[in-house]
Design a binder for these strands. Structure first.
Lengths: 145, 145
DNA sequence: CAAATATAATTGATACATCAATATTAATTA
DNA sequence: TAATTAATATTGATGTATCAATTATATTTG
């Protein structure tokens, strides 16, 4: 079962696919909002749909390390996308609040992200996508145990 | 076509899958060879199968930026996996040669990599894998144009 | 042949990834 | 309640990703 790539495994194709997607996604977003990355966009959107979330939970949702999230939030606070305040009930935690600038940015980028996804998945049938998701989830489970 | 993840797109599952795979791959390799990363392993293996390759070509094969490759090679030369000398016919290029240590490392890690791939793809049928590859390639093409 | 253009690789800047160690606060247990 | 353990987040170290600008060498063109 060789594949048409230097390592001969589909795992390599997975990596290539996500890299190509990230490339166009970042490029298109940059044309609308200058100082943001796709990862920061994702954080904004997740926070928007999940208020009151902790950094830990956020990290899990976006599949990032705790350390990465800490640094991303630092940057996003500095760039005034987020406000971070100490959580009153549990002083180990923080509240993450989206600023006005953050909200405006979400409105700007959401259609772009939508478009990026449509571009990437253009011409794929529902079955193909469903099956893709199913197969990838098998791989994820295999790797987790 | 929503998926069971925070963004509701399979593109997210792709990212998750490759991240999980890289995690176990790196962990297993680290148990055998202390000072190497999966990316450096891949570079070693590609170089082993493609002598006389330029940094440019190497970058394309492993889907990395030229800048990334330059820095990886620097590190790998420092760690004595590679020797880099100026190309005689074209003085803009370099010859990349694998050291003894590099060869020994390849022999150590190749079975591990094989095992990692088998673990990740365990229980998947040939059809599933073929289809996965095919669908991913459609996405890659979509993103490239 | 000289000037312009193309190619190969490097460098700087910034962001994310991962691991291990640490600090702080909360919850559990002796 | 004091001591232990667990949970949350940070920090340091190292490696990779991407873009833009630059250097050095080759090739093409006028």
């Amino acid at each position: 079962m060789r594949h048409n790539n230097p390592t001969g495994t589909v795992l390599y194709t997975i990596e290539q696919a996500i890299k190509e997607y990230r490339k166009i996604a970042q490029k298109n977003i940059l044309q609308i909002v200058k100082d943001i990355t796709i990862d920061q966009c994702l954080v904004l959107i997740i926070l928007n749909n999940n208020a009151e979330i902790s950094q830990n939970e956020l990290a899990n949702l976006v599949f990032k390390d705790n350390a990465s999230i800490t640094r991303m939030i630092e940057l996003m606070v500095k760039k005034e996308y987020l406000i971070r305040t100490i959580h009153q009930e549990d002083r180990r935690k923080f509240n993450l609040e989206i600023t006005e600038k953050g909200i405006k940015t979400i409105e700007l980028i959401e259609p772009i992200i939508q478009l990026n996804r449509e571009t990437a998945l253009n011409g794929l049938s529902l079955e193909e996508i469903t099956l893709l998701d199913k197969t990838l989830n098998k791989i994820i489970i295999n790797c987790k145990k």
